[in-house]
Simulated assay, not measured.
Amino acid sequence: MKNIAVIGYGVIGKRVADAINLQDDMRLTGVCDIISDWRIQNAVRKEYDIYAATSEASKEMKNAGIPVKGSMQDLLEKVDLVVDCTPKKIAAQNVTIYKEKGIKFIVQGGEKHETTGHSFSAENNYKSALNLDATRVVSCNTTSILRTLTALKRAGLLDYARGTLLRRATDPWESHLGGIMNTMVPERDIPSHQGPDAKSVDPDLDVITAAVKVPETLSHMHYWNVKLKKKASKEEVLDAFKTSSRIKLIQYDQGLVSNNTIKEMFLDMGRPWGDMYEVALWEDMLKVVGDELFYAYVVDNQAIVIPETIDAIRALTGIEKDASKSILKTNKSLSIT
Rank of each mutant, 00 (worst) to 15 (best):
Q108M: 15
G109P: 01
G109V: 01
G110R: 07
G110V: 07
E111K: 09
K112H: 10
K112Y: 10
H113P: 04
H113V: 06
H113N: 08
E114Y: 06
E114V: 11
T115K: 10
T116H: 05
T116F: 02
G117K: 07
G117Y: 05
H118T: 07
H118Q: 09
S119I: 00
S119R: 03
S119F: 01
S119H: 02
S119V: 00
F120L: 08
F120A: 09
S121I: 12
S121L: 10
N125D: 04
N125C: 01
N125A: 02
Y126F: 15
Y126W: 12
Y126E: 10
Y126L: 10
K127G: 14
K127E: 15
K127M: 12
K127N: 13
A129N: 03
L130Q: 02
L130V: 00
N131V: 06
D133G: 14
A134S: 15
A134M: 03
A134Q: 06
A134L: 03
A134C: 11
A134I: 03
A134K: 05
T135Q: 05
T135I: 02
T135Y: 05
T135M: 04
T135P: 04
T135H: 05
R136N: 09
R136Y: 02
R136L: 14
R136C: 08
R136E: 07
V137F: 00
V138R: 03
V138P: 01
V138H: 02
S139N: 04
S139Y: 00
S139C: 01
N141I: 10
N141W: 10
T142F: 01
T143W: 05
S144I: 03
S144R: 05
S144V: 02
S144L: 04
S144M: 05
I145K: 05
L146F: 03
R147S: 00
T148N: 09
T148W: 02
T148Y: 05
L149A: 07
T150I: 07
A151D: 00
A151Y: 00
L152N: 05
L152R: 06
K153P: 03
R154G: 06
R154S: 11
R154P: 04
A155I: 01
G156K: 02
G156T: 01
L157E: 02
L157D: 02
L157Y: 01
L157V: 00
L158A: 08
L158P: 06
L158M: 08
D159K: 14
D159M: 07
Y160N: 13
A161W: 02
A161I: 00
A161K: 04
G163I: 15
G163N: 11
T164K: 13
L165Y: 14
L165S: 11
L165I: 15
L166N: 15
R167P: 04
R167D: 07
R168I: 13
R168S: 14
R168P: 05
A169M: 13
A169L: 06
T170H: 11
T170W: 08
D171K: 13
P172R: 13
W173N: 11
E174L: 14
E174Y: 14
S175Q: 10
S175P: 03
S175E: 12
S175F: 11
S175M: 10
H176C: 08
H176D: 11
L177N: 09
L177V: 13
G178W: 08
G178P: 04
G178Q: 06
